[in-house]
Nucleic acid binder design. Structure first.
Length: 609
RNA sequence: GCCCUUGUAGCUCAGUGGUAGAGCACUCCCUUGGUAAGGGAGAGGUCACGAGUUCAAAUCUCGUCAAGGGCUCCA
């Protein structure tokens, strides 16, 4: 899936200075804004056609934060064109032109469109139901449109709109059809709202994991190695290890065993699994080794299935819960890679549960509970849940689909999580639950997924021996909680804006010696902290304290410890915490105890201990 | 893959046809300084890569790669 756009919901309204919060309603929540934005797109289209008479109009809807309009123009628009277009829009708004709704017959609409030679409009018209309506804007411009609109452009605030970007877009969203030029804009009721919206866009930019990845030296993507391949630097790698360690422990606690499986396998395996048929274009090309062809794995499932099939299983063994941090490689088309969010090599926190049909409900509930436990540890507490049911084209018999779908519903009900149903949205091989997490500025990200699979057990002829001695087919559940470690790491970084909780920070405490004389004392403090598993370092740059503090704050180190003659004398350390402010001078023993406790309990800071 | 934009020092960016610049970071020197940038000096670049135009290319043209904003895709 793609990253969410820079969406800024009303819940993002937190304001550092604590002054009155400016509400930013979404279009779908405000009929007034809907009319403004919809009309704004007409004003945009009129302005473009005035300046570029050859431009053909297509569609121009509102979006949650603004509007866009798609044009077919012989020359692509440039950023520079936007300025001119904006000026023209201001003229139209200033002219106080009326917008009028006119109901016309299909023939009348066809006649009007033909006069203007607008082929896209004609195509739109063909798909419309009566009544056909059009909206005029002034005397000589109109667009086929269902409305609603403002009555006059004087209702549009010239100080509350902006043209944001030009982009390519396909006619009817179909990449085989014409490439159009899309102009994005945003519009609000007041200039203050526009300013607030732009401030939130800046905020999202400040949180961008790609920027933070460089600034905090967490990871990089190297040209020489190739697109979509991640290099975890020591600081990022340390965090990843902490996440993995937590993940592993949580899985052992919950009755999982862990697997390691190969990164490549004979291509026949992928023929058996079916991936070669329906997933080939997302796979790296196979490689020839001796007499066999090997395939870099795009998924872990077939490996877990082979492990299951390595010997005969009894119903007494089920459920079997196997998890793996499995690194997979997928061929992503050029142009779709995005930081850590969309890459070509990534590690899934994959797990498969093989169970009896009657165990489905309980197993799903277990997965939901584990999911909540893990995600909430990273302060993701709001979820949006989708249940996708049987599509038309699917395999497996009705009884199994029913049982499985009921199992999913039962688990969601027992967990007490509200969910939406996407009828027919499941995979051909089974129903699924998708979970989106909401981050600190209100954006939704899909990470976790739980899918039932009636296909792979069939293809690999998986069996267990039932109580009556017969051979039966187990139910297979795929699930991932992070989705991929890379992607989750990116989302989490943006969620925290790089201000990681104490337990997760790669460098937890940085000791700042005020003078060289206290260095031996600082070294002994560091050693004692490190011995207790606290990630403590010493800033040896020799800069003045002000600079040391500035550097420490810029690297978002949770706790800075100032060490000067005073501290050396009393065996203490003066602490400055990003989360909790100045903690004063503490004896070393107290600091160690608090830090150890924070690590054990995965706490965000030291003060609460 | 498609449309647009971009690629200059580790980072952020100036540099419109005449042999390459700033700030931060880095190294060294001075400063031993108490809660968000002390001072000075130095080193560091096949101007993404390849071809072309030109007496001359970071600069113009074409191609390749990568990144950014979108579209499409994302079992």
């Amino acid at each position: 899936m793609t990253s969410a756009p820079i969406a800024v919901g009303p819940q993002a309204a937190a304001n550092e200075s604590g002054t009155a919060v400016i509400q930013l309603p979404k279009t779908s929540e405000s009929p007034a804004l809907l009319r403004i934005r919809h009309s704004m797109s007409h004003v945009l289209a009129m302005a473009v056609q005035r300046l570029f008479p050859q431009a053909l109009v297509t569609i121009g809807p509102w979006t949650e934060n603004g509007f866009y309009y798609d044009f077919d123009n012989p020359e692509p628009f440039t950023e520079a064109d936007l300025k001119a277009i904006r000026k023209e829009m201001l003229k139209i708004i200033g002219a106080r032109l009326p917008l009028e709704r006119i109901e016309v017959s299909r023939e009348e609409a066809e006649r009007r469109i033909s006069q203007q030679n607008e082929p896209y409009k004609l195509e739109i018209l063909a798909g419309l139901q009566e009544p056909i309506t059009l909206y005029t804007l002034g005397e000589d411009w109109w667009d086929l449109c269902a409305g609603p609109h403002v009555a006059n452009t004087s209702e549009l605030n010239p100080k509350a709109f902006a043209l944001e970007s030009v982009a390519g877009a396909y006619w009817r969203g179909d990449e085989k059809r014409a490439q159009l030029q899309r102009i994005y804009g945003t519009a609000w009721e007041t200039a203050e709202q526009l300013a607030e919206y732009q401030r939130r866009k800046q905020e999202a930019l400040r949180r961008d994991h790609r920027r933070l990845g460089t600034d905090l030296d967490l990871f990089s993507i190297e040209d020489e190695a190739g697109a979509g391949l991640v290099f975890w630097h020591p600081r990022g790698a340390r965090m990843r290890l902490l996440i993995e360690d937590f993940w592993r422990q949580a899985h052992f606690d919950d009755g999982y065993e862990l697997l390691y499986t190969p990164h490549v396998a004979d291509i026949e395996l992928w023929r058996t699994s079916g991936h070669l048929d329906f997933y080939a274009e997302s796979m790296f090309a196979p490689m020839q080794v001796d007499e066999r062809q090997y395939q870099l794995k795009p998924m872990n499932c077939p490996f877990h299935v082979l492990t299951y099939a390595s010997r005969l299983r009894s119903y007494r063994e089920l459920p079997i819960r196997w998890a793996e941090l499995g690194t997979v490689y997928r061929y992503e088309r050029p142009g779709v890679m995005h930081g850590l969010m969309r890459v070509r090599g990534f590690t899934q926190d994959d797990a498969h549960v093989f169970c009896l049909p009657e165990q489905i409900g309980a197993e799903i509930l277990r997965v939901l509970q584990l999911t909540e436990r893990i995600l909430s540890t990273f302060d993701f507490r709001h979820y949006e849940i989708n249940l996708s049911t049987r599509p038309e084209k699917s395999i497996g018999d009705d009884a199994v689909w029913d049982l499985a779908t009921r199992g999913l519903i039962e688990a969601l009900e027992r967990k007490g999580w509200p969910y939406k149903v996407d009828e027919g949205g499941g995979a051909f091989y089974g129903p699924k639950i998708d979970l989106k997490i909401e981050d600190a500025i209100g954006r939704l990200w899909q990470c976790s997924t739980i899918q039932l699979d009636f296909n792979l057990p069939e293809r690999f002829n998986l069996e267990y021996v039932a109580a009556d001695g017969s051979r039966q087919r187990p139910i297979m559940i795929h699930r991932a909680i992070f989705g991929s470690l890379e992607r989750f790491f990116g989302i989490m970084t943006e969620n925290y804006a790089g201000d990681f909780p104490f337990w997760l920070a790669p460098e937890q405490i940085r000791l700042l010696p005020v003078t060289d004389e206290v260095m031996p004392y600082a070294e002994s403090l560091q050693q004692q902290l490190v011995q207790q598993g606290v990630r403590a370092t010493i800033d040896r740059s020799g800069d003045r304290l002000g600079k040391l503090i500035r550097n420490g704050e810029q690297m978002k180190i949770p706790v800075l410890g100032v060490i000067g003659a005073k501290e050396a004398e009393t065996g203490a350390i003066s602490l400055r915490s990003r989360r909790d402010g100045d903690l004063g001078a503490l004896p070393l023993a107290t600091l160690v105890a608090r830090a150890v406790q924070a690590n054990q309990q995965r706490l965000a800071g030291l003060a609460a201990c």
